[in-house]
Write a protein that binds this DNA or RNA. Structure first.
Lengths: 228, 228
DNA sequence: CGTACGATTGATCCTGATCAAAGTAAGTGG
DNA sequence: CCACTTACTTTGATCAGGATCAATCGTACG
């Protein structure tokens, strides 16, 4: 089927749900000009909070970011992680409906939201790309819903590892930039369950936890089988 | 903040996560022309399936629709329900990544996907509206993620009842078009737990289950307190 | 080297799942 | 219109996956 809208097909990367509610905005590489000020954020620093006015759109140059929501009593659900190249923080509403924090030290370019809207107005292909990316995020979210609503702990951890591996362009080894707590809050589990599940996978010879942040995927096929 | 894009603010209705991954496409009422053929679907009839080519966008005239995904072994996660006025089935990808079925008998207008894209190309305000609705769905999905990942059974059921009430413009009474199984698959629970939770809420005097499909909200405030 | 934070492991608990049966309502055909 | 069927819901009894509570272990860092 040929798209009527004449656009940007090659920009589309396979969407894993790990990118969660991050937001891929095309940049200069894709032929779009969007500039902004570059800032460094350090580990655990807040980039924006739920309820803050959404004045900027952020593009991650290096590092990892988590996007999440909190309940009044502190329960946290991480919707996704952003990695180098991902953009996030563009909302339709005037305010952010989630928070963003640096998982590791980060370099981030902030572009005024209005500049993005202006670009979209003037450039239909940019507008289409924006919509398409948003729609892909939605599809990714539906996978995350399945994970949280219907999958077991092992399945969740397996999916997570595969998702990270895919994002890192690896098949044998993943390097986790985030803590067990972050993983747990992404998977709707506790740290203890994440930890136990990893050792269980290790005992089964499916992964090898070299250091807590470095995990070798010994049998990716078995992982894929697990992830449902 | 004044939107640079000059558009359609009043079209926005409050988004509940119940609409889930339904898709509100503006229609003639909003000054956009999109026509298509009207079809009747009966209870439990499939409208489209995961993996089917996404040729049409659907607008629900009457009835209720469920949007869901299945795992290989039959586990189902309902992402959302659509009600009269909602549109759904518009994807960025060429294929549907979820299935849609009639919960009740429905009347549905199907518009060729390409016609929607054409409209978006020609009408920037339509395009903006489309993006905005998609972005709102994403925000709604993030609430659903929190529900599934971090909330208890009572909290989930409370949220659900409030969401349905909001969609029906009611505060005292909800009429459920869907079965306990549908509710369970939306909330990531089992029918038994949904049923037990409802009787528990009834024993607490918070709701009254008149018939299984008709529930009176005796203390909406208490429900709101529960839903976290 | 010592401290502190994060991860792992262990023991126990509890929420919600599973298995099973009975109750209820809605159709259907005689 | 009623008897029968069938599907859905509720309730009960028990089970289990993952949570919670509590140490202990590692490891990065000051």
């Amino acid at each position: 089927m040929t798209a009527v809208t004449p656009i940007a097909q090659p920009l589309t990367r396979a969407t894993t749900n790990i990118a969660g509610l991050g937001f891929a905005i095309p940049d200069a590489d894709d032929g779009f000009e969007l500039t902004g000020s570059r800032t460094r954020y350090h580990r655990n620093e807040e980039i924006f909070g739920e309820g803050d006015p959404a004045e900027f759109v952020y593009r991650l140059t290096s590092g990892t970011v988590r996007l999440y929501r909190l309940l009044a009593d502190g329960r946290r659900q991480i919707a996704g992680f952003c990695f180098a190249g991902d953009s996030f923080g563009l909302t339709a509403s005037e305010d952010h409906w989630q928070s963003a924090e640096a998982v590791t030290d980060c370099e981030i370019v902030a572009t005024p939201r209005q500049a993005v809207f202006r670009q979209a107005e003037q450039n239909p292909s940019f507008a289409y790309h924006l919509w398409k990316k948003t729609a892909e995020q939605l599809a990714g979210a539906s996978e995350h819903l399945m994970l949280l609503g219907r999958q077991t702990a092992v399945e969740r951890v397996a999916s997570f590892l595969l998702g990270i591996a895919e994002r890192q362009g690896e098949t044998e080894q993943v390097t986790l930039p985030m803590s067990r707590q972050d993983i747990a809050d992404y998977l709707g589990l506790t740290i203890e369950t994440v930890s136990r599940t990893l050792t269980q996978l290790q005992e089964r010879g499916i992964v090898e936890v070299s250091t807590s942040r470095k995990i070798a995927l010994r049998q990716p096929a078995a992982l894929r089988r697990l992830h449902g």
